[in-house]
Simulated assay, not measured.
Amino acid sequence: MDYIKHLTEWISNAKDSKLVSGPSTLRAVQAIKNGVPINKTGYGNTTNGAAMKISPIGLISEYNQLDELMKNVYDICLPTHNSSIAVSGACVVAACISYVAAGGKDLNEMWELAIKVAEDSKGIGAEFPSPSLSFRIQYVRDIVDNCLEEEAIIRIVNELGTGVETIETIPAVLAVVQLANGDPMKAAKISASLGADTDTIGAISASICGGMTPNFDESDVSIIEEINSLDFDKLAEKALPFSPYYI
């Protein structure tokens, strides 16, 4: 309930909230304000907002304890993205974030983890018609394994899509992570070249890559902090005690 309270307050009061919030979240928050129960406010929302905001759950969950991780993800998804595909996509992202937070860097292991989580999580959340996420992950893996970068990008855009739907976003994210070979800046640039929902694909893929290769140019970090009024050191200090990998 604290999460719902903070989300509602932020959308109501932050000057840029309407610009950066997705359609599913805005509809759900309005429904919450209207008194609709939270087990109904996110029903049928299949877009990628849940996957985009779920990285913190990956930081506080263990990828090798999937039942707990998936429950944590579902609790966050319920008010705004209560559909099986949105929850499943968010579970994949959270598991990948947890994997890299634990020190994981093996792309093959990450692919296998993503496929497993997509399968294990597909029954969580309200049932809603969707193609198979695990099939599409395997499909895009075959593309990036067997194509040069330029051809892979063209095929991802034309065959799988890069729009706001979770079923398009998650395969594209994983493909970008491999094409960038874990380099967050390259992931951001590849994402920008895809077209459509580039900011979401870039945010997720760069966050995964950031955990794999956390070597950023200090000038880039300073620019990001200044433009967005952030202090990454303070944010890290606040988050660190909640990490299961923190000793």
Rank of each mutant, 00 (worst) to 15 (best):
M1Q: 15
I4Q: 08
E9P: 00
E9M: 07
I11F: 14
I11D: 08
N13C: 09
N13Q: 14
K18H: 13
K18E: 14
L19H: 12
L19Q: 14
P23H: 08
P23C: 09
S24F: 02
S24C: 05
R27P: 04
R27C: 09
A28T: 01
Q30M: 07
A31H: 04
V36Q: 05
P37F: 09
N39F: 12
G42V: 09
Y43S: 15
G44T: 08
I54E: 03
S55A: 15
I57N: 09
I57T: 15
L59R: 13
N64C: 08
E68H: 07
K71E: 14
I76F: 11
I76D: 12
L78T: 04
P79R: 00
S84F: 00
V87W: 00
S88F: 03
A90L: 01
C91Q: 09
C91P: 09
S98V: 02
Y99P: 04
A101C: 09
G103Y: 05
K116V: 02
V117D: 04
A118H: 01
D120K: 12
S121Q: 01
G125I: 02
A126Q: 11
E127Q: 08
F128H: 13
F128Y: 15
R136T: 02
R141W: 13
R141P: 07
D142F: 12
I143E: 04
E149M: 13
E149K: 13
E151H: 11
I153L: 15
V157Y: 11
V157Q: 14
N158H: 13
N158Y: 10
G161T: 11
T162H: 12
G163E: 15
G163S: 15
T166G: 12
T166Y: 09
I167R: 11
E168S: 10
E168L: 06
T169C: 06
L174E: 08
V177N: 03
L179E: 09
N181A: 14
N181S: 15
G182K: 14
D183A: 04
P184L: 08
A187D: 08
K189N: 14
I190E: 05
A192K: 11
S193N: 12
L194E: 06
D197A: 10
T200K: 03
I204T: 01
A206L: 06
C209S: 04
G211M: 06
G211Q: 05
G211P: 05
M212S: 05
T213I: 02
P214V: 03
P214S: 02
D217L: 00
D220P: 01
V221W: 00
S222I: 00
E225H: 02
N228K: 13
D231H: 13
D233G: 00
L235A: 14
L235Q: 12
L235I: 15
A236P: 02
E237V: 12
E237Q: 14
K238E: 15
F242S: 08
F242N: 11
P244T: 06
P244C: 10
Y245V: 11
I247Y: 14
